[in-house]
Structures are given as structure tokens and as C-alpha cells.
Amino acid sequence: MKDMTQDTDVLLSVRGLSKFYGARIGCTEVSFDLFPGEVMGIVGESGSGKSTLLNCMAGHLAPDCGEVLFAGRDGDLQDTLKMSEPERRMLGRTDWAFVHQHARDGLRMNVSAGGNVGERLMAVGARHYGAIREGAVDWLGRVEIAEDRIDDRPTAFSGGMQQRLQIARNLITGPRLVFMDEPTGGLDVSVQARLLDLLRGLVREMGLSAVIVTHDLAVVRLLADRLMVMKDGLVVESGLTDQVLDDPQHGYTQLLVSSVLQV
């Protein structure tokens, strides 16, 4: 087959990642590779360790052991856990992005929509107001927020708009890897659908790689190429998303899949 191996360079490689809260297990021995353009979903019920895993990968929590290797723009894999804090924070506003479940955790609620979206640009040195504003307008459009809302604060936005604003704020600097923690959680179903469609389009268009944590199987079905199922801190099953959902092998995954109400 032709050009099947074109993107063989790993973007993110997680190896043996474990985190304990005292005697309690957060997550144990998680290993996987993520390739450029791939979207991986992590599903499991509350307390399964999926959020712990995400926060360990994103550098918000310090794991007890393991490695989180990320390919820099030079292509070399570097352990982000061993990076100095300035390096890691720089990564956090350039190549990485993090979309929080609650938009207010990822937004500055007392700063206008335009300021929120422009912040990452200013953080990496943009000093031309006109250009920053132009970038903000462009991104608000891409997440379907009307240009005339640019000077409104997020407090005046609906939950769905806040979440879209958070996404614009994260993606404006063209990150290569996005971590998402329940991006559609707490939103109305109709709002969720719009957000999912938007995310899917952006992922395709920008060739984004993403790790999405959710308990909503419909979300991963639509967005994720691959799936990891977690239970009690362990990855019990992983594979191609539709394969894991349609032909689950592990008892827990079978339970999870069969528990979804049919509409």
C-alpha cells in the first residue's frame, strides 16, 4: 500500500505513567503512543483515573513514575516531566493547549472575549494591537461567535459560547497537541452537537492531535480515532474507536457500551 507510513514519527509517547494518592491508585502503568493528526479518547466512569492521567500528561499533576515524551519541532523526543518549569510553561502556551471542562477554569472571566483570545498571542510576543485584534476576530468567527461580541466579557456568554471561546483561545497559536477534559460536559445536547461538529472540523482542518477525556461514548465515537478504556486506574482495553465500541472485549467495556441508552 502506498504512503501508509508517511507520518511514522511519534508526537507524544507516554510510558509507564503512574500516580498514587497515598495508598489509593490514581492511574497505573499507562503507556501509549500518539501520532500527528491522531485523536485519542479516554473513557471510563468517574474515579477511573482518566482525569488524573490527563492532568499528569499535561503537567498539571506530578506523576510518581513514568515518562511523557513529546516531539519538539526539531523532532526530538523530550521528557516533559524532566523539563524545567519555564520550558514546560512555554510548551503550554505554544505547542500544547488544554481545554477545561468548565470554561471558567480556562478563561479570564473579567477580560473581554477578544482579550481572552489574544492573550496567547501576546504571551508569545505579539505587540501589534491591530494584528492581535484581527487574529481574535478571525478565531471568534471560526468558533461561530459573532464579531460584535468581541468586546463583551465571557460572563455575558452562554455555556456553549464560553466553551467555544475557550477553544478559540487555545487554538489561536496553532498548537500541535490539545488536551481536552470533558469538553462537552455540562452542556445541553443541542449545544454539544454544535461543539462536537466544530471540534471535528478544527481537528481535521488543522491536523490537530488531541487527547480527549470524557465519559460520553458519543463524543469519542465522533471525535476519536482511538480509544482507551479505563477502570480503577488501569487501562483495561484500547484500540480503534469503532472496534472498541462495537466489539468490546473486556467485561467492563461491554458493560459501559451496553449501558448507553438508545435513542
Binding site: 500500500m1 502506498k2 504512503d3 501508509m4 501520532f35 491522531e38 480515532d225 482511538r226 484500540g239 480503534l240 472496534q243
Partner: peptide, 12 residues
Amino acid sequence: APRDILALRRQS
């Protein structure tokens, strides 16, 4: 691997 299956589905 999953990504090879995805590539196969895309291309062949």
C-alpha cells in the same frame, strides 16, 4: 495498529 487501519480505510 489502529492508525494503519485508519490509513487503509482512507486510502484503500
